[in-house]
Design a binder for these strands. Sequence first.
RNA 1: GCCCUCAUCGUCUAGCCAGGUCAGGACACUGCCCUUUCACGGCGGCAACAGGGGUUCGAAUCCCCUUGAGGGCACCA
Length: 480
Amino acid sequence: MTENIRVRFAPSPTGYLHVGGARTALFNWLYCRKHDGKFILRIEDTDLVRSEERMVGQILDSMKWLGLDWDEGPFYQSERFSLYDAAVDKLLSEGKAYHCFCDAEKLKVMREEARKKGGAFRYDRRCLHLSDEEKQRLTEEGVPKAVRFLVPEGETAVSDAVHGDVSFNHKEIGDFVIKKADGSPTYQLAVVVDDHDMAITHVIRGDDHYNNIPKQVMIYKALGYELPIFAHIPLILAPDRSKLSKRNAAVAVSDYEEAGFMPEAVRNFLALLGWSPGDNREIMTLDELVEAFDLPAINKANAVFDVKKLEWMNNEYVKLLPKEDLFARVKPILIASGLTDEDFVANNAAWVEKIILLLQERVRKLTDYPEAVNYFFNMDFDYDEKGVRKQFKGPETAHMLAQLVARFEAADDFSLETIETIIRELAEGLDVGAGKIIHPARLACSGLTVGPSLFHLVEALGKERTIARLKRAIEYIKAS
RNA sequence: GCCCUCAUCGUCUAGCCAGGUCAGGACACUGCCCUUUCACGGCGGCAACAGGGGUUCGAAUCCCCUUGAGGGCACCA
């Protein structure tokens, strides 16, 4: 029943892919996949000055990281100028657009005056009324000329998939530039020409484009194009409800990648920003997201980006990760941190994996690993200060740890069961709770007061290392 | 300044379109339980319909105003 749905994501290569753009891309992608449509990627680089080629690669990498694949493109607007020129010429010849010789300086003055009078700037059409001789003269003098769209009277009314019926009075809109004096098209023109040329059926984009609806619809109509369905999605805000910017948060998708978040989690989190499946589901697979996604269900209000919730969600995904997957993702992180190296990991895979598994439930992000497992690889760690005060009290602790060392040394094997038995028996012999031994021992073995079960920790550490650490702690206590 | 949009717990949201439920869930915070600690998990708690007018037997839901927040007003996209 669905016609051929075609959507597009059209980033401008003036920066990294930020979370807002990523969410727009995600919504487009979800809608497209749900309806078996095509997802087109278009690079809007008509601004020759601000666009940077290297940003394209960055944006594409972030999209791939999030698993947002596209069916066509990337197309570059900078390579399609002839198309825009043709459209502009058509509008010009039909009297729907006109040349404007006003320079930036003159326009700036006009804008300031409009502001002072307390209104919005609207071009006064002085160039529309230029006589033919005047135009001839200016052109011969080589005065640069832009092309403005002649905004007709009336109003533009369309139905937005998330906002419902919306209308705009043309009185508020001044004749806007569609072709700059340097010959490049403006966004307003290029976006319409391309969306039509690429047969885009649904334009899903941020609310910051809401006020562009009338301008673009006017161009669609002037060019005789069929209108797409518009869907303007709410913006993502910083915790203080201001615009999300580098100043108040990490905004680039790559920031989150570097911070150790999993793409599945970021994607799931982003999907729930401004949209909800309607039931109480939160952790959803890609297939479930595609299945449940729908344009009318999109919320109209802006959403605040809450990193805390992202972290929780990331932990949910870490816990869901199959062992092999977890190992494959964490090993490179451990190596990159300098804790260990490739050879060691290759030669001691089972041990490294055991340690990774020990911490799986406890890390929020995969990059929390190096710090969380540091003591397995290094012995020269410092002891947690609070822990020292609480657990390393006096010679009796040293004595107790010494007894533990003796029992460990005498142990025939170092299995989980043996370790637990030894510790519990020692506690019984000393007539104290097991905790009295466990806590100082944990601090001695890891330097920390938190972590996995001590029995598991000791088992993973092995006899040698455990005893060396206990002895180190005994010396430390005696010296203090 | 002018125009537009939006408005449910601190945050993300369900409920709104087709008025009638103790306004539901999640994060965060927090109490208890589990446990050698932390985390995980389980069971609880705190916490919202921005304010004011209407319409109606009845309003979070419909209408208006105010307030607040966001967006736009470029030869940026």
